[in-house]
Design a protein around this nucleic acid. Structure first.
Lengths: 241, 241
DNA sequence: CATGGATTATGATTTAGATCAAATCGTTTC
DNA sequence: GAAACGATTTGATCTAAATCATAATCCATG
């Protein structure tokens, strides 16, 4: 890792740019940064409720979230909708579309959001000459695969309470990694959307929030969640029976 | 798509090599094929029950299955195991490990298998100068992400019978794509492993196999499955209620 | 700021699938 | 080839979460 020191210096340089720091984590030289600027030129904002892309639309770009909150969901033939993920600042969306050249899910903003559009073909070409960029792209895709496997474990093996605990802890950890409070945050999605993501019904989500509150694990006020006993939630997760 | 004709010719050239055709789908020139041969030099065989890799082992290579059958699974703290996938000839395993430089799941051979080990760093470097290889690598990773989302929909929204139907149709389709019979195949995994993958108990899997048989949808003889009414299974999948 | 449509909370009842239990079938081992 | 073990099938019972139902609350918009 001879590059280590240089990378650490650059970390400071690009600390203000969420894309560089979070999406395609740091490690570029000044010349490379210029190229990246060209790449990430196209910024867009998406209003609450607006679709960033829809199933079936031709794929050309992936999207890095600069700020805001999204959900992605797939639609089954019979009309059932399943929320496949919630995405926040620094996350990259649209990676699932590369294989088919067509978006395979819908992406909706759950609040006013700003994204930057990254033409995938250009990114791929750039990655040719920029080993760090290439590595980061692979890392981002790989992380999504690994995370999806965790979600499968959750959907396939956990009980409702465990799913909710895992969900809250994951949200907390992600907010925390972005510099926001780990203990207190605003939910951007409805109980129904949480339920859809976790394979539960909204009533079950609501009931368990109430139960967690009664047990002193969290405090719920509509969409504001406070984690009162993080370890309690973790214990709930790790234990059998 | 000016490359189209060339690619089609090459398709024939490498039609005998499962790796080239299926894993990193076709599109290489003769010179590039030589380089690929260097890359894919390391072949290994894995006996039934043997681990190809385990959670926590350092990541260096991804693995292309030349023949045989694998399952991958993750272990929860409390001992619960969840099967995250079944993998056959042409599939690539280990992509989830790139992000952490460490394998995040176990890969076990369910029958005698042959794999070829692809040092990821070298593949990544090669992809620098071989646009088609680069594109295919991205496609393979993207396909896994998209497929995982389908699995989430299955685990989160489908009833037990629908999951089994989806599972059987997916297996059938994959065998078919590899030149085997779509209508008749041998299961390599136990009812318990199917259950683990689908978020069901082995008794439920067994009961539904029996039910499907009674309804004339399939014929089951231990591990040999015959799809008697593919459309019936598809109907089961697409319908509400 | 009033009105109507979402969203949430909570209770009563139902049900799909889990759990518990036992018998059968297969296959590996000694 | 008998013993032992694992895998499968099938039945009876139980339970976690779904469904149905109602009320309360929120909040979006004219």
């Amino acid at each position: 890792m001879k590059e280590g020191n240089i990378l650490n210096q650059l970390k400071v340089v690009c600390s203000l740019c969420s894309l560089r720091e979070l999406c395609l984590p740091i490690g570029f030289g000044p010349a490379e940064l210029q190229q990246l600027d060209v790449l990430t030129g196209s910024k867009r904002h998406v209003k609450r409720g607006e679709y960033l892309y829809r199933t079936g639309m031709p794929f050309a770009s992936i999207y890095a979230i600069r700020g805001g909150f999204f959900k992605t969901s797939i639609l089954h033939e019979d009309g059932r909708e399943h929320v496949t993920g919630f995405h926040m600042m620094g996350d990259i969306m649209g990676l699932d579309a590369i294989s088919t050249d067509m978006h395979g899910c819908d992406a909706v903003a759950l609040e006013y959001s700003e994204i930057c559009e990254i033409p995938f073909e250009r990114l791929s070409e750039l990655s040719m000459t920029m080993p760090v960029l290439r590595h980061n792209l692979h890392k981002v895709m790989s992380r999504e695969i690994a995370f999806d496997h965790e979600v499968m474990l959750m959907l396939g093996k956990m009980r409702a309470e465990e799913r909710l605990a895992a969900f809250l802890l994951n949200l907390s950890q992600r907010f925390s990694a972005r510099g926001y409070s780990a203990a207190s945050f605003q939910l951007r999605m409805t109980r129904e959307e949480i339920g859809s993501y976790l394979g539960l019904k909204l009533e079950t989500v609501s009931r368990i929030f109430s139960k967690f509150q009664d047990e002193g694990l969290i405090a719920v006020q509509k969409k504001l969640i406070e984690l009162k006993d993080e370890n309690g939630l973790k214990r709930l997760l790790g234990s059998l029976a």
